[in-house]
Write a protein that binds this DNA or RNA. Structure first.
Length: 500
RNA sequence: GGCGGCGUAGCCAAGUGGCUAAGGCAGCGGUCUGCAAAACCGUUAUUCACCGGUUCAAAUCCGGUCGCCGCCUCCA
């Protein structure tokens, strides 16, 4: 078929590209797929512009220490970020801090601190927590308090377009004007129980389902100087408009991926969508990824329920961030995660097993080559990466890793691994650790005195001078080094430092 | 009442139409070891909450039942 324009017009039609996409879906198992909360289906991930990905995660409110529910959310965001990067995408990743809302204002009031000082200390703590969990920094961490102008501007434009109204000094979004409301959560406004969790008497909305964009400042806020002058009077922004304003400010009108916990789908994300899409007529995000909830004894974690654990609680109990990361990573992000200390202990054991393997690999002298190692390794890498590409199936990926260790362990203890193979394994582990961030792969050279002691002990053992051998072993233990004898020689392990 | 999720071995947890139902923990058996500790290997589900249906084929799809959980415009 010859077309007058060379067919370009047809190549750009949606019909054609849809067919193209279908073909691609079948073509490659390696293609990155995400479960999109909008369609409730797994979809092949295609960013708007080539290798660049815009990614937004709802961040924490700076008024409390990160609890395990928060941690799960942010670790899932970290995994998405790392998986995207491993696929060669250039990720623009922004996560906000909600540092201006009822909780932060109340918290500052209670602790008799200026709001900014109060939130600053929690933001600092939060970043330390994320470091402990091995979470990579975002490209930027915008703060709500620094983007109020944009929020006021959005509000003015929404009023202009007829999507919002002013009442007694507060501005509300008029849901009846936004026909697509509910497309993410599947909510039917005529059937929900309005007022089930809210005391509607606190509001002056025209309809109870409308939500606040800007809230009239209270007397106590005015006294503390926490208010913004607008044509409608003194106000502070509501939560939903904060995220909508920051995500579009940094990442554009339509972002590739928006993530958070599923408990935020309604109303928060639904309202963000309403604000952004009423304004631009374009989708706020193409892919919505939601992590499931973390439960303790089958119940949601909450301070009222008395079953709330902060990251700091666990660190204080002697668990380290790596162990907690393992625990939070090991369950698929779209399944509920039941937290327990038993599980945390299991995570510790799993890590010990991984450490044992990598430490042996690093310590033991290489020997003869083994014919199947390369095949085992490429099989593991394929399974590992394939599992992650398929909606970040970390459980499956870890399964492939443990399987591999099981195959290599006997080979390792027989010393049938040559230098090249050892290098090859360590390189591949390095690659997968870019996502896991759990493996200890650093070849830390021993201090000369430690090396000396290990050699001394080996000599004593050769001479069957058991007393001296045990003395040296104790000495090494005091210095924090555990020695494990293997048929191929001693393997040393440095005692784990508390990673706080 | 509405919307959504979960139920797979003693425990945790993948798999969502077809190869032997991943992997981990605990248990049991074994190997190694001067001692010790660890480690390593083997083994553990004729069956996927229950009942019925569709199909040559179901943990997976459809209908129903039971149990547990989350959200429903406070805040995040």
């Amino acid at each position: 078929m010859i077309l007058p324009d060379g067919g370009e017009k047809y190549l750009s039609t949606t019909l054609f590209s849809a067919k193209e996409e279908e073909k691609k879906d079948v073509a490659s198992e390696e293609q990155l797929r995400f479960h999109n909360s909008l369609s409730k289906k797994k979809e092949v991930f295609r960013p708007i512009s080539g290798k660049k990905v815009t990614f937004y995660a709802c961040g924490p409110t700076a008024h409390e220490h990160a609890n395990l529910s928060h941690c799960r959310r942010f670790i899932v965001a970290d995994l998405i970020n790392r998986v995207l990067e491993s696929k060669g995408f250039n990720v623009q990743f922004y996560m906000n801090f909600t540092d201006l809302d009822e909780n932060t204002i109340r918290g500052a009031e209670k602790s008799r601190q200026p709001l900014l000082e109060f939130t600053e200390s929690y933001i600092r703590e939060f970043k330390a927590d994320m470091d402990a969990l091995g979470v990579k920094n975002a490209t930027g961490f915008p703060r709500a308090s620094q983007h109020v102008e944009a929020m006021i501007d959005i509000t003015a434009r929404l009023i202009e377009k007829g999507f919002a109204y002013e009442k007694h000094g507060s501005i509300y979004f008029d849901i009846s004007k936004f026909k697509r409301y509910g497309k993410l959560s599947g909510i039917d406004l005529s059937k929900i129980q309005v007022g089930k969790t809210v005391d509607l008497d606190d509001y002056e909305k025209e309809s109870p389902v409308d939500f606040t964009l800007l809230k009239r400042s209270t007397l106590s806020e005015l006294k503390q100087g926490i208010f913004y002058k607008t044509e409608w009077g003194n106000v502070r922004p509501g939560w939903h408009i904060e995220c909508a304003a920051m995500s579009t400010h940094y990442l554009g009108e339509t972002i590739d991926i928006h993530t958070s916990g599923r408990d935020l789908i309604f109303p928060h994300h639904e309202n963000e969508i309403a604000i952004a899409e009423a304004l631009t007529g374009k989708p706020l995000a193409n892919y919505w990824l939601h992590s499931e909830q973390l439960l303790v004894e089958g119940k949601k974690m909450s301070s009222e329920g008395g079953n709330l654990f902060t990251l700091k609680d666990l660190l204080n109990k002697g668990y380290n961030g790596r162990e907690i990361r393992f625990l939070l990573i090991a369950t698929h992000y779209r399944k509920p995660l039941h937290f327990s200390f038993k599980k945390l202990d299991e995570a510790r054991k799993n890590l010990r097993r991984l450490d044992e393997f990598t430490q042996k690999l690093l310590c033991l002298p290489p020997g003869l080559p083994h014919p199947k190692v390369a095949a085992y390794l490429s099989d593991m890498e394929e399974r590992f990466c394939g599992a992650l590409a398929n909606d970040i199936n970390m459980s499956r990926a870890l399964g492939a890793l443990f399987d591999f260790m099981k195959k290599i362990n006997p080979i390792l203890s027989e010393g049938k691994l040559d230098l090249e193979q050892k290098k090859y394994i360590l390189e591949t582990f390095g690659k997968i650790n870019e996502i896991l961030n759990l493996l200890k792969l650093k070849e830390c050279p021993l201090a000369p005195e430690i090396d000396r002691l290990i050699k001394d002990r080996e000599e004593a053992r050769r001479n069957k001078d058991w007393e001296r051998a045990d003395t040296v072993r104790n000495e090494l233990a005091e210095k924090g080094f555990e020695i494990v004898d293997t048929p191929k020689g001693p393997v040393w392990k440095e005692r784990e430092k508390l990673e706080q």
